[in-house]
Design a binder for these strands. Structure first.
Lengths: 217, 217
DNA sequence: TGCTCAAATCAGGATTATCCCTATTTGTAT
DNA sequence: ATACAAATAGGGATAATCCTGATTTGAGCA
């Protein structure tokens, strides 16, 4: 009895490629494909597959919401997230939603096959890069709260980060906050250390992703 | 004599999938793969393939710049753009850069195979959705309503901007481009003057909006 | 052919920003 | 009462930035 799989990704050629790869495995069988979250849920309801390979970024209903729904309604159906992002928030949300695996799109095919057999076996499979994030998060987490990257920054640090990401100089920020430039420097250094970022370009992108500033201007 | 192809995409599993699909075609042969623009150029120089399947969004040197370089240095090597975007600006720039084909990632595999044979035959292949854009543009033949990074910045400046927005230091960029740090500084200064931007945060946002770099990482 | 101009390259020197380390004060939770 | 994180800030070394000026190369054109 082979493992029955539904592929969900909004890019057809990627689905085709994955199908072509998976067809080579004797114990794996693609039974359907979907290009958005809603379609995926319909197919799962109809076919109850063993595994869903789920892209995160899909139009309409995204992969995270679809996974949440499937995990709730069909606990036996395992979901493996296939994502371009190693962004912590996506990982966190996807795992909270009930995914049994999380793979990055730059992984090798062997990893996909391995992950499928792993989740069918009732275990969790994560890409190595993802494991790092999850472990890191676990180490930092207290029994009570599950701190996100966002909550690791203090109010003052977020304030400074926002101003930095809006393009202000250290001096301007110091004047605006009525502190010395050295203080602003210290805040920035702590922010960067906490986020493991060492340049303004990456820091700016982080701030945009976190909604602290917009892409405009 | 089969068609010799180089695959360039920064996601390994996508390359694997495409390879798996293309291997089924008797007249098509994958001779190498690359995960960024610079590597692609090196491989083209070394192997002179018939066709390069080129992802647009790659780190370091992006697909548009790589295509421009290849089309100029190796006119016999055909490039097919494989993109998630149907954004007019990407299409325009990719075709201007010298691409012989433009496919959307949600196309069917048959289209990819067809496009390869079409460009080898010396013709141009466009996804239907792309054809609409190009035809629409041709009919109206209006100049671009708003200038993009491609009209205001030189090739070298765009290259530097992309690296800056990816978080590289001046020194790293100088080393990568085999020029002095002073040269990189000059490019950056010119970029900022042209765009009327005076800080890295705003410059990074600009690069993201223009598609030179992604928000991730 | 010679001219012009933009693009790409780089230097010197002055000014700022950043990095790394250390330290004090203050509020808060136990 | 104490322990700890947050906010503040300085000193000194290193690196980036700003401003000015200069050379080379190639493309376009009278």
């Amino acid at each position: 009895m082979s493992i029955r799989i539904i592929l969900a990704d909004d890019h057809k050629i990627i689905r085709d490629g994955l199908r072509s790869l998976l067809e080579k495995e004797d114990d794996i069988q693609i039974i359907a494909q979907a290009d958005d979250g809603r379609k995926t849920i319909e197919l799962v309801t109809e076919l109850t597959p063993d595994v869903v390979i789920m892209d995160i970024g899909m139009p309409g209903l995204n992969g995270i919401e679809a996974t949440r729904h499937i995990a709730h309604e069909f606990p036996k159906v395992k979901t493996i997230a296939l994502s371009m992002h190693s962004d912590k928030r996506f990982v966190t949300e996807m795992l909270k939603a009930g995914a049994s695996g999380y793979l990055l799109k730059n992984c090798a095919f062997e990893e996909l096959a391995t992950s499928i057999r792993t989740v069918v076996d009732g275990k969790t499979y994560l890409s190595p890069a993802i494991t790092d994030i999850v472990v890191d998060n676990y180490i930092r987490s207290t029994p009570d709260t599950q701190p996100t990257v966002y909550s690791t920054l203090t109010n003052r640090e977020r304030e400074v980060l926002q101003l930095l990401a809006e393009g202000r100089t250290t001096k301007q920020i110091a004047i605006q906050l009525y502190v010395s430039t050295k203080t602003v420097e210290t805040h920035r250094a702590k922010i960067m250390k906490k986020l493991d970022i060492d340049n303004m370009a990456t820091l700016t992108k982080y701030a945009v992703r976190e909604g602290l500033t917009s892409l405009e201007s």
